[in-house]
Write a protein that binds this DNA or RNA. Sequence first.
DNA 1: GAGATAATAT
DNA 2: GATATTATCT
Length: 314
Amino acid sequence: MREDESNWFSKWEEELPPPEELMPLSQTLITPDLALAFDIRNPSNNSASHPHHQQQTPPPPPPPTAQPPSSNPLAHSQPSSAEFAADSGELGSGAAGDEPARTLKRPRLVWTPQLHKRFVDAVAHLGIKNAVPKTIMQLMSVEGLTRENVASHLQKYRLYLKRMQGLSSGGGGAGNGGGGGLAVSSDPATDHLFASSPVPPHFLHPVRPNSDHFLPFVPMAALQQHHQQQQMAAAAAAVAHPHMQPQYHRQMGPFGSPPNGQFEHPFLSRQTQQPVHRMGAPGHNQVPSYVEDLESANGNGARRVLTLFPTGDD
DNA sequence: GAGATAATAT
DNA sequence: GATATTATCT
């Protein structure tokens, strides 16, 4: 019985993505403040083109405390880059100028296989029992990730699990047979994302009321220190998702910042606790490999989407 | 279909 | 009141 768990646990450890793969997420979400600081906003469509209910809060006075005027590393690179030039010129209209960056809606979070994996890992460690949005979120330690993000994803994920349960129990044969692990189950066409990460066994069958021995609190950061060779995970993901290329190096964010432009978001630092930022190597520029992909151009409803990973589509 | 958001329940 | 879960919308 317990062997099952130690089994998948080992696997779990092995599959832990290296820091490199995890980093991107931390910078992924740009807070309104940050966006404002950089003068970033929607390229093509602005509030103007949306007669909808875009939740435009007009009068939110920007807090005077928003600006850490100290030596902000990123302050040096103002939106003067060529790329930005066009940018700023374009969105000159609209209300971006004084629009409440405070109330800007975050772009949709894109659950990449890596991110989802982290999610599954967290859930696995917490156990279905304790796997609630908040806890999961904390365990994931992904800055910018909100409880709602997790909740929403969790909802879908549970649905997915349910589906699988039904399939394995009702189908009888069920190739995958609760063994879980390998994603040889339902067609990836239906649940691409979910299929990308193995589902711990006990996820499917009813958690037996054993003496709950859930791990107190294992900051993944701690575990990560030991492993850093599971690139395979990424590879596997890539296989499942040929669309995206696992090139985690690509340091040119939306800010067109130079390689040495370290990003430090005082704004983002707000999560519960950040024991020790992985990526130890002090003095090493932690240029995150992320890319912000603004999806727009559709006169209809251009919605901004943040891609956590380089799409390599240039 | 994915993710966010509103509504409702605990 | 905060968080979780469910339902609905985009």
